[in-house]
């Protein structure tokens, strides 16, 4: 007993599960590079209006269709707008849409999954609806929803939420079903805890790991789909510098001035790649079997 107290005293900070997970994540170099890229992205998105060298809508007819150079790091488009500024400013749309849609989907999906796993009567209704939604190809689903509601950013976000909810519902339900059978849940019942308390205090914290992983990976899908939807004109409308739109505007000039489409495309690639690395790293760090 003496030794244990000595060891505990040496590790003066609380050995919370979060600190353990963070330590394991730190060891994964790929995941950390993903995290760093994302942090840079978030910082630049937040500070975009102040750090971009040119106004993203400012047109300069003397500097049209320039390739990347000292003045314009990513070159200019057919209206003479600086592409670097447009890409950096465009990250705001990407991040906003990605984070908001995925968060709302995570909240709704987790709630549905939790309730479905707990109350057998809801289970069938919820999961069959989820099955139907998953069965429809996501792009078709989004296009249908936007066609019904009208082309706007708000409606695109609604459509993206709807497509993201099923994955969260399924994952949460599977986790809750497993956690529910563990002995400490029975122990919690034996001390008189109500269903609500058990759900929120005992089951939920033990079910979050795969949800967190799905969050990062779900964001990837949302970002790619929002870029695709904007590309075909069903999401963010021009002249907003959303990355998908930037690729679309560059299409007509693809053969001679490829930088207009490729560079925003590269931004999408880097972002989704970073998210994927982080998601994989989180999945490994959160895996209880590796403890």
């Amino acid at each position: 007993m003496r030794d244990a107290t000595v060891v505990a005293a040496v590790r003066t900070r609380r050995e919370t599960p979060m600190r353990q997970i963070w330590r394991r994540l730190k060891r994964n170099k790929m995941a950390m590079s993903g995290l760093i890229i994302l942090i840079v992205l978030i910082l630049s998105a937040v500070s975009a209006p102040w750090i971009i060298p040119y106004d993203y809508a400012e047109q300069d007819y003397d500097a049209r269709l320039l390739f990347p150079d000292k003045e314009h790091w990513f070159g200019t488009d057919n209206f003479g707008r600086d592409i670097f500024s447009r890409v950096v400013y465009g990250s705001r749309y990407t991040l906003f849409i990605g984070v908001v849609c995925t968060s709302i989907a995570a909240l709704i999906g987790s709630l549905l999954g939790l309730l479905a796993a707990f109350y057998a009567k809801l289970d069938n209704v919820v999961m069959r609806t989820v099955d139907i939604l998953i069965g429809i190809p996501p792009m078709c689903l989004c296009v249908s929803i936007i066609a019904a509601l009208g082309s706007s950013v708000k409606n695109m976000m609604i459509a993206l939420c709807v497509t993201s909810v099923p994955a969260f519902a399924r994952i949460m339900r599977a986790q809750v079903l497993t956690v529910k059978e563990q002995e400490f849940i029975e122990a919690a019942r034996s001390i008189g805890a109500s269903d609500l308390r058990i759900m929120l205090k005992h089951i939920l914290p033990n079910s979050l790991a795969p949800i967190i992983v799905q969050f990062t990976l779900g964001m990837v899908t949302v970002i790619l789909m929002s870029a695709s939807l904007s590309f075909i004109g069903m999401g963010v409308q021009p002249p907003a510098p959303e990355w998908g739109l930037l690729i679309a505007t560059g299409r007509a000039y693809l053969r001679d001035y490829w930088h207009m489409s490729i560079l925003p495309g590269l931004a999408i690639v880097v972002t989704t790649f970073a998210l994927n690395l982080l998601g994989d790293g989180l999945r490994d760090a959160l895996d209880p079997r590796l403890k």
């Binding site: 599960p17 563990q182 002995e183 400490f184 029975e186 122990a187 919690a188 034996s190 001390i191 205090k201 005992h202 914290p205 033990n206």
Partner: peptide, 15 residues
């Protein structure tokens, strides 16, 4: 009140 058989699994690991 009740005490269960296996102490390893009777406590919530995240609290």
């Amino acid at each position: 009140a009740m005490i269960f058989q296996d102490p390893m699994t009777s406590l919530n690991p995240v609290l």
